[in-house]
């Protein structure tokens, strides 16, 4: 099995993030480019709202990087909606070649890996990656109508309303994509759709183990090792699974789903989830830390739960997947 993919000259030339009102009340609010109070984003349906959020995120990315859509060779992006519509409808007006990706909530890292490979292989010079999720469209598709009066279990998570984007190219900058590892599908046998953390934790542990085995690095080489959206439940499970085999991990390990909300004050159960979770935390918070030099090495593991409402009703287990991307500051 091919394991780690090393990149030489893939740089991060910018990032942008747009979030909703719940995220704007969270501890990372000041890092986001735009916090939208209107959950409809000025549109008339949740699906259109999510597409508009993606469109605005890319627009912001172009503005911050002083480029226009014509300067782009490719957009790699994805979301959680059926047939990946939020991303494809969101980017259509830019007229840029587009690859729609689906890796459940691991989509952001998947997009970064694909984009980096495209640049490495010479298939594209400058690529934008994005991933989005919207609380309302996700609830509508996967759970209950918003007005339905039900209680959720404590292990449940709150889908992040947010879209994060990065601009990648071969043009040198302070931050580069150093290496990456594609995750394997891990079926842990979990069938409870309200316990995604447990379903994905084993996949995260699998990729982390493989990554540190084949990269020759140790957790202490990183400033931050962050899983995408395990939430508190999955975070704790992952910590327990690895506490003997990866010593020192706990000192560096965090989870985007726990960073984005204040778990004590906000009613979000175990934390954030969704494609947008690791996307906005990376594009806003981690990128800020890397840019300012507060962190030099960040390992992002976007975690995804592979399922759909029908497979859950059929009692099929929810599989997990986790892709790793290593962002490194300024060695070139």
């Amino acid at each position: 099995m091919r394991d780690i993919i090393r990149f030489e000259n893939i740089y991060v030339n910018g990032g942008s993030s747009v979030v909703g009102k719940t995220e704007a009340k969270g501890p990372l609010a000041r890092y986001f480019d735009l916090c939208e109070e209107d959950e409809y984003f000025g549109k008339d349906s949740w699906e259109k709202a999510e597409s508009e959020m993606t469109r605005r995120t890319l627009e912001k990315l172009f503005a911050k990087a002083h480029i226009s859509p014509e300067d782009l060779d490719l957009i790699c992006g994805g979301d959680l909606l059926n047939q990946c519509v939020a991303s494809s409808f969101g980017v259509k007006e830019f007229g840029v070649p587009f690859l729609g990706l689906y890796g459940a909530c691991s989509t952001f890292a998947e997009a970064v890996i694909c984009a980096s490979m495209f640049i490495k292989g010479g298939g594209a010079g400058r690529v934008a990656v994005c991933a989005s999720s919207h609380f309302c469209s996700a609830e509508k598709q996967y759970r209950f109508p918003l007005e339905y009066g039900g209680q959720r279990t404590p292990t449940a998570q709150n889908t992040v309303t947010g879209c994060g984007a990065l601009l990648l190219s071969g043009e040198p900058s302070d931050i580069r994509v150093a290496d990456a590892m594609t995750g394997r599908i891990v079926d842990a046998g979990i069938t409870d759709a309200n316990n995604m953390g447990a379903a994905m934790a084993k996949a995260a542990a699998d990729t982390l183990t493989r990554y540190f085995e084949s990269s020759g690095m140790k957790p202490s080489d990183f400033d931050i090792v962050a899983t995408g959206d395990l939430g508190r439940e999955g975070y704790e499970i992952c910590t327990e699974l690895l506490k003997d085999s990866l010593p020192g991990l706990t000192d560096k390990y965090t989870d985007c789903g726990m960073l984005i909300y204040d778990l004590e004050k906000q009613d979000v159960h175990c934390g954030g989830s969704g494609c947008g979770c690791s996307a906005v935390v990376t594009a806003a918070y981690f990128l800020d830390k890397l840019t300012k030099g507060d962190a030099s090495n960040v390992l992002l593991l976007s975690t995804g739960a592979l399922m759909n409402p029908n497979t859950v009703l059929q009692g099929q287990s929810i599989c997990g997947i986790a892709h790793a991307v290593h962002f490194e500051r300024g060695t070139k």
Binding site: I190, N195, K202, E236, T250, T254
Partner: peptide, 28 residues
Amino acid sequence: IPCIKKEANAKNLTGDVMNNENYKKYAA
């Protein structure tokens, strides 16, 4: 980094947790 907890809410792992039957029980 905020949110890092030195002491995760550790329940003792017994047996081979990487075995699915054990893992399911452990998660449940």
